[in-house]
């Protein structure tokens, strides 16, 4: 059984890669998308640090460089865009085609997600080298923390996918998904550690970030990669990730069932 699934995933990823290879120009644009925003935030915070005597709350320009270099990697690995596609999929009949197959449509999205990320490694690796050369990041990460980064970023990617995919289901009820998605990504900007490292946010915002899922998608793995998580807080972080994933999957299953029911009632 596992062999059959592995074969399906291999075929689907191969096909998705073949499709994505067709869009070379788009790849160049996506590269800008990956590099540009971390670079802007990095430049802004470096300027702020330099103008306030060299540090902001203990973050030196090299710390910011390290932070945004890792954030760029984590952002790439945890990225999800399916919430922008579902309205089109439903309207143009793609959803009906997917429902006719003896396979849960989420599998196709997981494969596409993985294949895009594999493909864009070709872009990500030079981008990381560029960041290292230009901004000279400084890492003071203990080995155990660097190792913990790997499962943390994978769990973060799983969490981001589960929540993002559940959000994509909104397209079954409304055609105005842009508003919902914008709200989601704005929350992410603040609470995932995008706009600024969470350490720099006011205390109450840090508390909110702790109870929302966004920190556990992006900021937590980044903090581990930089050695900024105390050893006693690591297990709690993994537990928060796991809990959010379990909760997310339970919600996803319910929402998916309701979405199919909705789709089957009103027609595609």
């Amino acid at each position: 059984m596992i062999g059959l699934w592995a074969r399906y995933y291999r075929a689907q990823i191969k096909l998705s890669l073949a499709v994505q290879f067709q869009y070379r120009v788009a790849m160049a644009i996506w590269m800008l998308d990956i590099v540009l925003s971390p670079m802007i935030y990095l430049v802004v915070w470096t300027t702020v640090a330099q103008s306030s005597g060299g540090t902001v709350n203990g973050f030196t320009p090299s710390d910011f460089a390290a932070y945004y270099t890792v954030l760029m990697i984590v952002q790439h690995i945890t990225q999800i865009w399916h919430m922008w596609e579902y309205e089109y999929l439903i309207r143009e009949g793609g959803m009906a085609q997917r429902l006719l197959r003896p396979l849960h449509p989420i599998n196709e999205d997981i494969s596409q997600n993985i294949s895009y990320k594999i493909l864009m490694l070709m872009v990500l690796i030079p981008a990381v080298l560029l960041f290292v050369l230009l901004f000279r990041p400084a890492f003071h990460t203990p080995l155990w923390s660097a190792l913990a980064f790997i499962p943390a970023v994978l769990l973060g990617a799983a969490l981001a996918f589960v929540i993002g995919w559940t959000l994509a289901m909104a397209a079954f009820w409304t055609t105005r998904i842009v508003a919902i998605n914008s709200l989601y990504f704005t929350a992410m900007l603040f609470f995932a550690g995008y706009l600024a490292p969470l350490d720099l946010l006011p205390r109450f915002m840090q508390m909110i970030a702790g109870v929302l899922p966004f920190r556990w998608m992006m900021s937590f793995p980044v903090e581990l990669a930089l050695g900024r998580v105390a050893p006693e807080a690591v297990l709690g972080g993994f537990a928060a990730q796991a809990l959010w994933i379990v909760f997310g999957v339970l919600v996803l299953r319910r929402v998916w069932k309701a979405a199919v029911r909705r789709f089957s009632s009103v027609g595609g």
């Binding site: 009906a96 429902l99 006719l100 029911r261 789709f263 089957s264 009632s265 027609g267 595609g268």
Partner: peptide
């Protein structure tokens, strides 16, 4: 569509 499971 009802016969192919797309519509309830």
């Amino acid at each position: 569509k009802m016969l192919s499971g797309l519509l309830y």
